[in-house]
Nucleic acid binder design. Structure first.
Length: 490
RNA sequence: CGGGGCGUAGCGUAGCCCGGUUAUCGCGCCACAUUUGGGAUGUGGAGGUCGCAAGUUCGAAUCUUGCCGCCCCGACCA
């Protein structure tokens, strides 16, 4: 029992950290607030990235890459944008070091000061729109549909592995359109891509909605988002898609000539998801024994473990397993055979449970005689004896079943944790239970701020296709036409 | 930046209050053997600037001062 995990009940935050560290997803690094993503964690991210990348390309986007550094003056061209990010930027001021004759160490060479400081990108709207100015002249250049996979830096005061790190990996899409409607359609399209990805691949149900003014992206006209619910009842923003209007086009003077030979500013969107999704995945599904990964994202879907008492037995098992491995691979199942003799089966069972491998197959001499294997599924911990005949097909079906079961479980939890509140007292009680609270709101930033101050809860989103009903604001009792979703959030 | 806590082997720790042999224990690591159907056992072994610096002292992990770093709570975080 060398890898105890703190239980969720005892300390949810510690449980999360334990999972990340002990399942080998990431480590703390020598740099405050920055993590090392370990191979298993990176494999998870790669699987997410590859699927998203495919979906972006299917919707007509191309990848490109823009500089890590942004001239300081660029950031200030869009007023709301700079206000939103100024307080969390890393700034490059010099380009050379020198030996310090006094201490013998290395110091910044004061003569190597940059004329204009460079900002390490917290997001790339500015450098990209500065570039788009040279790319776009005519409506024939539109739409421009670009995505980039990159790292960004936001100097947050307090960080948490995957959920909020100083440097993180993400993708950011930046598109340019001839009309407002086309840009809005793009914004919604990408929101739907994210929602589909979250639900079908990550098995994580999400609510699609639009942000209130307070929570809007700095420089956006509208921010759409997908919101997920974690097991501790707190909400997590899993992805955002922004309709930027003509804000950045105006800030960077990006105009185009339309079919009638009239000049107009370009309409823009941007959208992104980050390595935070790995954190979301952990908190949505895992349990006190470790990770639970949906098969579609798992780096290893099936692990096979031999059980033997001597070399002859091992050899017979090896031969059998080799055949199964071929069958699995033919069906596109990611399988690993762990015949490492340094660890005993019991250790391996615990280890792969910790790592969230969806299916474990144990095969021993006894099984060879009976023409069966022992199949254990991670999500329910069920163990059954399964015939060797048609094993790959059995497992293929099982993996789909696990994917569905994990989603259903998360959805059930989420649905049971959306509650309507009609009085302030109800509102506070329900927030303490965790989950989303649907309540009426008078639509003002002032009221939202007041509610945040009183309860630490924020408006996570105003759901799309929200039911319209007359009511009174939970705080001010002013009239309202729809409920919005409040929650305490990460 | 305010409040609290902590720095001893790769990790987790005892010792510190009340200074005194070779710095404790567990995990992990290395070798060998026996093991292998739920985190094995035995034997042997390696591994330490006790965060850094100065001071007090015959003598400092232990006392004093300064510095550095980390964690938690708050502020902050679209």
């Amino acid at each position: 029992m060398s890898k105890e995990i703190t239980t969720r009940e005892k300390d949810y935050a510690q449980w999360y950290n334990d999972i990340v560290l002990k399942a080998g997803l990431a480590d703390y690094s020598a740099v405050r607030g920055c993590m090392v993503i370990k191979p298993y964690g990176f494999a998870l991210w790669e699987n997410m990235r590859d699927q998203l990348d495919k979906m972006f390309k299917e919707t007509g986007h191309q990848n490109a890459y823009f500089p890590l550094f942004i001239p300081k003056s660029f950031l200030s061209k869009e007023a709301a944008h700079v206000e939103g990010f100024a307080k969390e930027c890393a700034v490059v001021t010099h380009y050379r070091l020198m030996n310090d004759p006094d201490s013998g160490g290395i110091v910044v060479d004061p003569t190597a000061k940059l004329e204009e400081e460079l900002i390490v990108r917290p997001t790339s709207e500015t450098i990209i729109w500065n570039t788009y100015k040279t790319w776009i002249q005519s409506y024939r250049d539109l739409p421009l549909l670009i995505n980039q996979w990159a790292n960004v830096v936001r100097w947050e005061m307090r960080t948490r592995l995957f959920l909020r790190t100083t440097e993180f990996l993400w993708q950011e899409g930046h598109t340019a359109h001839a009309t407002a409607q086309e840009a809005i359609d793009e914004t919604i399209q990408m929101l739907n891509v994210y929602a589909t990805f979250a639900e079908e691949w990550m098995a994580m149900p999400v609510i699609k909605g639009v942000k209130s003014e307070n929570e809007r992206f700095a420089g956006a006209v509208d921010t759409y988002c997908i919101e997920a619910l974690m097991q501790d009842g707190k909400a997590l923003q899993a992805g955002t898609s922004h309709f930027l209007g003509q804000n950045f086009a105006k800030a960077f003077d990006v105009q185009f000539t339309d079919k009638e030979n009239k000049l107009d500013y370009v309409w823009a969107t941007s959208w992104g998801v980050s390595t935070r999704l790995v954190g979301a995945l952990i908190m949505a599904h895992s349990d006190d024994d470790g990770l639970i990964l949906p098969p579609k994202i798992a780096p290893v879907q099936v692990v096979m473990i031999p059980i033997y008492k001597n070399d002859e037995q091992k050899k017979l098992i090896d031969e059998k397993v080799k055949l199964f491995m071929e069958d699995f691979k033919a069906l596109g199942i990611k399988v690993k055979y762990d015949d490492d003799d340094n660890n005993r089966p019991g250790w391996k069972f615990a280890e792969y449970e910790l790592k969230g491998v969806p299916v474990r197959i144990a095969i021993g001499a006894r099984d060879l005689q009976n023409n069966v294997v022992e199949v254990a599924r991670r999500d329910t911990k069920e163990k059954v004896s399964v015939s060797m005949d048609g094993l790959a097909n059995t497992i293929f079906v099982l993996l789909n079943d696990i994917q569905k079961n994990i989603y259903d479980k998360a959805k059930n939890f989420r649905d049971n944790n959306i509650r309507n509140a009609d009085t302030w007292q109800e509102f506070e009680q329900m927030l303490d239970k965790g989950g989303f609270v649907a309540a009426h709101w008078d639509g003002t930033a002032e009221t939202e701020n007041k509610i945040k101050e009183l309860t630490k809860a924020t408006i996570r989103c105003i759901p799309l296709n929200n039911k319209q009903e007359n009511g009174k604001c939970i705080l001010t009792k002013k009239p309202s036409k729809e409920r919005v979703l409040f929650a305490r959030a990460y």
